Deep mutational scan, measured.
Amino acid sequence: TEELDSELELPAGWEKIEDPVYGIYYVDHINRKTQYENPVLEAKRKKQLE
């Protein structure tokens, strides 16, 4: 659920942004990119696909 997503600790260099226009998204300051999917959940999903 969304509530559990926010409890996950983000990897180093990541920041969660709550924007009133664009909603919640994540900033990867190391690689200078943004995405809507939580990077922790993304990594778990990719691992399940292997």
Rank of each mutant, 00 (worst) to 15 (best):
E2S: 09
S6G: 12
P11M: 09
D19E: 01
E42A: 08
E37F: 03
N31Q: 04
E2Q: 10
L41S: 13
K46E: 07
Q35F: 01
W14V: 03
Y26K: 02
E2D: 06
R45C: 07
E50L: 08
E15C: 01
I17A: 08
L10N: 02
V40S: 13
I24W: 05
V40I: 08
Q48S: 13
T1G: 10
I30S: 06
Q35N: 03
Y36M: 15
R32F: 04
Y25T: 06
I24S: 10
A12T: 10
W14C: 05
E37N: 13
E50Y: 01
R45P: 12
S6I: 09
E2Y: 04
I17C: 07
R45E: 15
E18T: 14
D28G: 00
P39Y: 00
H29Y: 05
N38V: 09
V21T: 15
A12S: 13
K33I: 06
Y25D: 05
E3Q: 08
D19S: 09
L41W: 10
Y22S: 13
V27N: 05
N38K: 03
E7I: 06
V21W: 07
E50D: 14
R45W: 05
Q35S: 10
E18Y: 04
L8H: 10
K44F: 09
K46Q: 13
Y26Q: 04
E37A: 09
T34A: 04
L8M: 13
R45V: 09
I24L: 08
E37P: 02
G13N: 13
K44S: 11
V40P: 04
A43S: 11
D5K: 15
E42G: 10
L41K: 13
S6Y: 11
Y25E: 07
D5Y: 14
K47G: 09
D28R: 00
Q48M: 14
W14P: 02
E2L: 05
Q35V: 09
T34P: 03
A43E: 13
K16F: 01
D19H: 10
Y25P: 05
L41F: 15
P20E: 04
Q35I: 02
E15M: 07
L10V: 08
T1Y: 09
N31S: 10
D28N: 06
L41M: 14
E18S: 05
K33F: 02
H29F: 01
Q35C: 05
E9Q: 10
E42H: 02
D19V: 00
T1D: 00
P39K: 00
P39Q: 03
I17Y: 12
D5R: 08
Y36H: 11
D5S: 15
